[in-house]
């Protein structure tokens, strides 16, 4: 019984981080109708920044989180404003290839500057033990912060001025433009928020897992999967999808062996896509 609770607890801790990964990706896909191939690299970049600040300057990753978030917001904003906005309404082939190309540049840059060596922030905060279930404090903290950030984003989208503008653009770009919303700017802010979430989440992940450039594709794949499970452009959807994927991977890893986790995730996603060609909870019209 304890083992099951442990598996579930691991799955939920993982899932909270996954939700945080996917929420920004889902936002960009849903609002801009763009698949952002840079997303995995944003996460890894955030992780590296947090790692080096911790290793060389002794800054706690939980503080660095905010610096990373600000830096990645700016990076994301500029990328969208300078490049992606120019093709944002073009077919998938163009937008996807463009972000793919941008990702190669960022990825290459990270490989040269940070090298591909796996880096991990080891905080050794000990564990919270409930019965035989062990909850390491660093993971627990990462999970809570990830959930908090997701919650804040949800609140921002629902209640703030810019949040309403983003939702309006998502629903009907042309109508929003007619209402005086500057669509390109909203796009850039949306993309910035997405990069910000990715970077902050990367900083949290560095506390739990080793960060390496080799995982950019993997993280991107997880974001895909979560979006397919949870649907596009909605924060609760990403949360549900993220937690679901965390649990699935946790159980699959325990029963079948960790090496099958990726295969299971990919197959799950392909199956879901085939059963529901437009995504499980996804809306039609966001193709």
């Amino acid at each position: 019984m304890e083992t099951y609770i442990q598996i579930i607890a691991n799955g939920l801790m993982l899932g909270a981080l996954y939700a945080c990964i996917a929420v920004g990706f889902s936002l960009v896909w849903g609002v801009l109708n763009v698949i952002n191939m840079l997303h995995g690299s944003f996460i890894v970049l955030g992780g590296y920044l947090a790692f080096f600040a911790w290793a060389q300057l002794g800054v706690s990753p939980f503080v660095m989180l905010f610096v990373v978030a600000a830096a990645l917001f700016l990076l994301g904003f500029l990328i969208q404003y300078g490049a992606i906005n120019r093709v944002v309404s073009k077919p998938v082939l163009l937008t996807l290839t463009l972000t793919f190309g941008l990702d190669l540049i960022l990825y290459n840059f990270m490989n040269v500057v940070f090298e591909a060596t796996p880096r991990r922030i080891t905080l050794d905060l000990g564990s919270l033990g409930i019965g035989e279930v062990m909850l390491p404090y660093d993971r627990l903290l990462a999970m809570l912060l990830a959930l908090a950030m997701t919650g804040i984003l949800y609140w921002v989208l629902r209640s703030s001025r810019i949040g309403r503008a983003i939702v309006a653009v998502r629903m009907d770009r042309d109508a929003a433009a007619l209402m005086g919303i500057r669509v390109n700017k909203v796009y850039a802010i949306t993309f910035g928020i997405s990069a910000m979430m990715a970077g902050a989440c990367g900083a949290l992940m560095a506390v739990v897992y080793p960060i390496t450039t080799n995982t950019t594709g993997l993280l991107l794949g997880k974001a895909f999967t979560i979006c397919v499970i949870g649907g596009l452009g909605s924060v609760p959807g990403a949360l549900v999808g993220g937690l679901a994927l965390g649990l699935i991977e946790s159980f699959a890893g325990t029963w079948l062996g960790a090496q099958y986790a990726i295969l299971i995730g990919s197959l799950l996603m392909l199956t879901l896509l085939m059963v529901r060609p437009t995504g499980l909870i996804g809306k039609r019209g966001y193709e």
Binding site: N33, Q259, L270, M274
Partner: peptide, 28 residues
């Protein structure tokens, strides 16, 4: 026959996932 039921972004993502699936099969 299965994957072409998807369109647009979903098809693109599905086609990329196909690589990942075969990659994993080859590794395992």
């Amino acid at each position: 026959a299965a994957i072409l039921r998807m369109k647009g972004h979903y098809f693109a993502v599905g086609s990329i996932t196909l690589i990942e699936v075969l990659h994993q099969v080859a590794s395992l």
